[in-house]
Write a protein that binds this DNA or RNA. Structure first.
Lengths: 342, 342
DNA sequence: TTGTATGCGTTATCAG
DNA sequence: CTGATAACGCATACAA
């Protein structure tokens, strides 16, 4: 039973420390974990550990404890300002709780998200926050068979039993349109992203509802669809202006809005005097454009924080019923939509 | 020696599969890893694995293989556009190689980075890309005793034996100033970040050197120091303009530059006609401001990519000599600095 | 080809 | 208080 220990020059383990201290690995481990031991043993083990520079192996510890102290965040694009804000908020919460954050960029890949959900069974993280841009049946199935705790950020069918953080971009759009109407605008255009995405669909519905509610002209020529990026916003605005002349534009996110602003300024159109502009998400971009951009905050940071917290709570209490938190939208008025008409 | 298996309802392991298939765990493991086995065994094991939904435990596998297939990235602020660009580039490279990315926000905390370096001994990741904003002696010591592969992004003393990716912001500033002089400007201001940071010091030196080289007036009133953020840029520009009247401003990063742009436009100063503006880092912000911002690219994406690749290479060959890659700066000219004088 | 047994590094149980 | 030993789940050297 001789233990062959032909190791080249590997990192010290409890064995190393124990041998050097002349005690059993059990005693060494106990001291290292702050459990009871005689002053004598305590002393010897600490000295030995310090001498060899012992650091406990996280993987071995994880195997024992069945926890990795890591949480995963999966978003479509870790470069998108909205996700950056969420990620930053999550990282803070998670770190404070002693966890690390593993980030996944899922790209537009629909299967990728399902793979990640199934990947939870590998137990490389203790839980996952998923921010899907589209939700398919495959998602729902994968969610129901997920091997670990999952929090989904974004709208979900009501009967899905998963911790869920959402916002209400539908009424968020309403906030923006009400504000524009109050400040004297009537012909309010919408520049939206793809309608087959969760956010795109919600914003579209919100716009149509608000338009009716406020008694605005039901002119579909005022609606333009592109994608959610800056360039798309520029181009969509070009198309829009070649066709109609609104007195305000609501954009489905800040990237689009900044693109729209660019096109407006290029054409010498004054903002907000001639056309007012409101974006959505209230990212840093809104503050940093000129004129500064009004924007409907959907609480990205708060959603990130909340999602992280729900996940942490779930780890503590796996049996509590699924939570559903809705972060209310909030209109932030800046120069791009200030009232200028009497 | 009867193996008591009182597990509640735990995830299936090789044991589960082996027992169900009626073979040894060794055979089960072999089949699952695509090694040789009789068609009979192959069949039974696959069926059993599928039936119980077996997924190998990543932690146990890591303990055996001594690798986690995770890499860490530590930056000061995961919300900073420059780091976002690096992170995104790294994530792509790393994922393609089958690794996951663990992100750490170190904040301004100088000890935090040292802790992360020492934390490598825990072996929770296979390697680390560190992007320190300041480099102290403590960093150098921690680097020399690092328990795992490390790549540092940013300038480092020449004798440090670490894989290192850097850029040359010193000559990057020169590029900007040369361009501004060629387009007719002479009184070129600098708005910089803190001089005790690595980037701050480099840009300052680059500015002074270029000023001499180009025979520009050595007027220190043209230099303003703040921090690297948008608001700092705004305020620094206020202070600057209250004091002097430059015909161009070079800003130490894009955030500052956008802040400067804001102040200039607020004061009704035309850009670039009256004052030209050049930023640094060439982030998305540069493209998205109006007028679009000229900026010196320091290849954030490329540095991220390279750092990731160096780390991956190092994992394959731990003994190769330390590599030092310098990504050259590149001036991207946009509307904010186009020549307007004859 | 197959099974037995061992180690990866840690923690915990259970005698002594 | 201490030490021997098992177990976490996987992969493999070695023997059959």
């Amino acid at each position: 039973m001789a233990r062959k220990r032909l190791q080249g020059n590997r990192a010290p383990t409890v064995h190393t420390v124990a041998k050097l201290a002349g005690v059993s690995i059990a005693s060494a481990s106990r001291v290292l974990n702050g459990l009871g031991a005689s002053p004598e043993t305590e002393q010897r083990v600490r000295a030995a550990a310090a001498k060899v520079g012992y650091v406990p192996n996280a993987v071995a510890r994880s195997l024992r404890s069945r926890r990795t102290d890591m949480l995963a965040l999966a978003v479509e694009d870790i470069g998108n300002p909205v996700y950056v804000a969420m990620m930053r908020a999550m990282e803070t919460v998670v770190r404070r709780a002693g966890y690390r954050l593993v980030v996944h960029a899922t790209g537009a890949d629909p299967d990728g998200e399902v793979e990640l959900l199934d990947g939870l069974a590998k137990r490389y993280v203790d839980g996952l926050v998923l921010v899907p841009i589209r939700v398919t049946d495959a998602h729902l199935e994968a969610l129901s068979r997920a091997a670990g705790p999952v929090v989904v950020v974004g709208a979900l069918p009501d009967d899905v039993e998963v911790d869920n953080v959402r916002t209400d971009s539908h009424s968020g759009v309403g906030l923006a349109l009400s504000h524009l109407v109050e400040s004297g605008r009537r012909r309010i255009a919408l520049i939206n992203g793809p309608l087959d995405t969760v956010p795109g669909a919600a914003r579209q519905a919100g716009y149509l509802a608000a338009r009716d509610r406020l008694g605005l002209p039901a002119d579909d020529a005022l609606i333009e669809i592109g994608d959610f990026r800056y360039e798309d916003g520029r181009r969509a605005t070009e198309r829009l202006l070649d066709r109609v002349r609104p007195d305000a534009i609501f954009c489905a996110n800040d990237l689009i809005a900044v693109g729209a602003l660019h096109t407006l300024l290029s054409r010498g159109i004054r903002v907000p005097e001639e056309i007012a502009l409101v974006g959505m998400d209230d990212t840093d971009l809104a503050r940093m454009s000129f004129p500064q951009l009004s924007s409907v905050s959907l609480g990205s940071e708060e959603r990130g924080q909340t999602a992280a917290q729900l996940l942490l709570d779930r780890l503590v209490d796996p049996d509590r019923p699924p939570a559903r938190v809705t972060v209310p939208p909030r209109l932030v008025i800046r120069a791009s939509s200030r009232a200028v008409r009497p």
